[in-house]
Simulated scan of single mutants.
Amino acid sequence: MMTNLFSVFDPSTSIFNLSLNWMSTFIGLLMIPSMYWLMPSRYHIMWNNIMLTLHKEFKTLLGPTGHNGSTFIFISLFSLILFNNFIGLFPYIFTSTSHLTLTLALALPLWLSFMLYGWINHTQHMFAHLVPQGTPSVLMPFMVCIETISNMIRPGTLAVRLAANMIAGHLLLTLLGNTGPSMAYYMVVLLVIGQIALLVLESAVAIIQSYVFSVLSTLYSSEVN
């Protein structure tokens, strides 16, 4: 039962043994080139405003020690996850962000690069981070263990948070949708209203999760400067 339930999230479309579901990850790229050769539309003005707002916020989080242009990494990350989350809400389009394959591929290299940069360039600062300020000397060994573990699981928590949130809502929509044919007509009306409400909620979750992922990545990078 569980295998059948989660199999709806498996990439299934294949031509010449190529899994084409993952191609949905690149659909967002189709929306970008038009910005360079079309007159600015409301969509472009809105998107530019979002980018500027994110740039200011990430700049604040990175602080004065942050490198110039480093906010663009996190803005690009936000855009990629947002496009994929939204595209997954359309029927028959594979949600790539619901798989740990993609989310870990985003979180792990980022975290690893921050750690390498921090330990190579700011070793003393990184050691200081292992013991929070004001910790009693008796608790210091325990705090070092706790801080090390919490640091090690960061890419995992980033990846699982995004994948779990994406899969949970889609699973609920799938389960409710599958009960439709066996329900009475008046119950189907309630089901459709419920599905629309869930879809609105999932749209909000798509935005929030992409924002949370990029903000936490920014905070992790600000710690190593």
Rank of each mutant, 00 (worst) to 15 (best):
T3A: 15
F16T: 11
L110Y: 02
M140I: 07
M143K: 07
T179F: 08
I208R: 14
N17Q: 11
L38F: 13
F26C: 13
G180N: 14
L116P: 05
L130I: 06
P40G: 05
A163D: 02
L77E: 04
H67A: 15
G194K: 02
D10A: 10
T60I: 14
L173E: 09
T65R: 15
A164Y: 10
N21K: 07
I146N: 09
T101G: 09
L102K: 01
L130D: 00
Q195L: 15
V188S: 06
I75A: 01
E147D: 08
T53R: 12
N178Q: 15
T25S: 12
V200Q: 05
T179Y: 13
K59T: 13
S41T: 05
K56G: 07
V212M: 10
T103P: 00
T103R: 00
N49V: 09
M115P: 03
Y220C: 09
P40H: 05
Q209T: 10
N165D: 05
T95G: 09
N151G: 14
T101E: 10
V131L: 06
I149Y: 10
F94I: 04
K59N: 08
L89H: 03
P181E: 05
G169L: 07
S98Q: 09
N225E: 15
G66L: 02
L20W: 06
Y92E: 10
A204G: 15
F127Y: 15
G194D: 01
M115F: 09
F72R: 15
L130C: 06
L216P: 03
S12I: 13
S222H: 01
G118V: 01
S150I: 14
S70P: 06
N151H: 15
L52I: 12
S137M: 14
S79W: 07
L18A: 10
P181F: 02
W111V: 00
V138H: 10
P64A: 02
I93W: 02
M46T: 14
T218N: 01
H122M: 04
L62P: 01
I193A: 08
L116E: 11
A206K: 01
M23V: 11
F83G: 00
N17V: 10
